[in-house]
Design a protein around this nucleic acid. Structure first.
Lengths: 224, 224
DNA sequence: TACAGTATCGAACGAACGTTCGACTAATTC
DNA sequence: GAATTAGTCGAACGTTCGTTCGATACTGTA
C-alpha cells in the first residue's frame, strides 16, 4: 500500500526527523514512561512495527531526541562565542542562546530538561558527557568573570547551577501569549544573574546594563 | 499471619505515613509512570492488595505525597512570615524556608517538583490551587519590595518565576557532600536574587547584606 | 461465644506494554 | 526479468501493569 499522505514528501532521511518531531511532542506531553510507542505510532502515522525500522528501542529514540537537541544548542553556542572576548558578553551570549533555543524548540527542550533520568545504561553516560561539557563552558566563563573581579565571593558552582535553574525552569511556566519573548527574557535573566552575583562588589550597577546583546533580535528573524 | 517486623510498631495511622515515605522514594527514583505499585509493595513490605486498603489508586497515592509536602511547606512558611514585616526579610524567609524544606525532604520535594504533570483530573486542580497560593505569596512579597522602590523595572512575574527556578532546580544538582547546606545555600540564592532584581537601582549594594536571617541556623537545629 | 469491624494477603482479571516476525510492496541493480 | 534492497505493516509474542475479589486472621464489644 502506498503512503496515504501525498502532500508530505518524506524521503528517507527526513522521515526519521519526522518521527523524532512527533515523538518529542508525545514525550513532552505524557512523559517518557507515560508515553507508549503506540502513542508515537498514532501521532506520526507510522505503523508500530514501521517505527522500529528507524530506531532500535524506545531508549534509543529518547537518546536521539535529547542528543540532537543538546548537540545543536552546543554547536550554536560555540559558534556565537567566537565573536566575543569579554566574560560578561560571553555569559550574555550563553544565556541568550539557551533561552532562544528553549523557546524555539520547547518540546525537545522539555524532554531534555525533564527526562534526563529516564535514559539508561549506554545512552545516559553519553548525554551526561555533553551536559558536563556545557556546564564546563558556563563555569569557565563565570570563572573568567570572577578573575576580572566582577563578582563577589559567591560559590561559583552554586552560582552557575542557579543560573541553569532559572533558565531550565522556563519550560514549566513560559506562556508565549503573556510572557516576554526570547530576547527580553534572556536579558531579564542575564540582568538578574549578573547583578546578582556582583553582590555589591562593583558600585556602578548601570555598567553591565550598557552592553546588551543587540544582535539577538536579528538572529531570531533570520532563523525564523 | 502476624507482621514480620516486630521492631516497627506501625499502628494504623502511622502505616499510611510509612507507605507514603517508601512510595516517595520509589517515585523519586523511577518517576511516577516508571514506578509500579509492585515496586512500592516491595519497598514498603506491604502486599500488593494490602496497599489498596490505604489508598484507592496510584493517582491518589501521588496526590497524597504531593499534597502533604506542599501543605506542610506552606504551613511552615505562613508561621514564619508572621515574625517579619519588611519585604526583604520576608523574601529571605520564603527562600530559606523553601530551601530548608527541600534539603530536608529531598524525596518528597523531587516528586513535587518533577511529577506535577503526572497528576490527573480531580487531583491536578487541587494541587494547582495550592501552588497558585504559594506563588501569590511570593508575588505579593515581591510587589511590596517593588513598592518600596527596592527593585528596578523588571517584569515581576519573570522575576518571581526565575527565583522559583533557582530554588526548584536544586534537586537536580545538590550533593550534600560537596554543596552548601540549607542556610548557606538559601543565603546564596537570596543574595543572587535580591541583588539581581535591584538592577543598579539602589547604589549601596552592601545594605541588603546586613540583615541576614540569622535565626535560620537555630531553626535547623531545633527541628532536626 | 457470637458478631462486627479492621487489617491483610494470594490469586487472578483484562488491558496495555515494548518488541519481533514474516510477509508484502516498490524501486534499483545486474 | 531475476535478484536484491529499502521501506512498511498486521499480527502476535511474552511480560508487566493497575486494580479487584474473596478469604483469612486479629481485635474488641455484646
Amino acid at each position: 500500500m502506498p503512503r496515504s499522505n501525498p502532500a508530505q514528501t518524506d524521503t528517507p532521511p527526513n522521515k526519521l526527523k519526522h518521527i523524532l518531531g512527533h515523538a518529542a511532542r508525545v514525550f513532552s506531553e505524557k512523559g517518557f514512561e507515560g508515553a507508549s510507542i503506540r502513542d508515537i505510532s498514532r501521532a506520526s502515522r507510522v505503523s508500530l512495527a514501521g517505527l522500529y525500522y528507524y530506531f532500535e528501542s524506545k531508549q534509543k529514540l529518547l537518546y536521539l531526541i535529547q542528543s540532537n537537541a543538546f548537540t545543536s544548542i552546543l554547536r550554536r553556542l560555540e559558534e556565537r562565542l567566537e565573536a566575543a572576548q569579554k566574560p560578561e558578553q560571553r555569559l550574555r551570549i550563553l544565556i541568550s542562546n539557551h533561552i532562544e533555543y528553549f523557546l524555539r524548540n520547547p518540546l525537545e527542550m522539555k524532554v531534555l530538561a525533564h527526562e534526563e533520568d529516564a535514559l539508561e545504561a549506554p545512552y545516559r553516560k553519553e548525554l551526561l558527557e555533553i551536559k558536563r561539557r556545557y556546564y564546563e563552558i558556563a563555569r569557565a566563563i563565570f570563572d573568567d568573570l570572577r578573575r576580572e573581579g566582577e563578582t563577589g565571593r559567591i560559590n561559583p558552582r552554586v552560582a552557575v547551577l542557579s543560573l541553569f535553574g532559572m533558565m531550565n525552569w522556563v519550560y514549566k511556566w513560559h506562556n508565549p501569549k503573556v510572557d516576554p519573548h526570547a530576547e527580553a527574557l534572556g536579558d531579564a535573566i542575564a540582568g538578574i544573574f549578573l547583578h546578582g552575583v556582583c553582590n555589591g562588589k562593583s558600585e556602578n550597577g548601570a555598567r553591565t546594563q550598557l552592553l546588551r546583546d543587540r544582535s539577538a533580535e536579528q538572529r531570531v528573524r533570520a532563523a525564523g
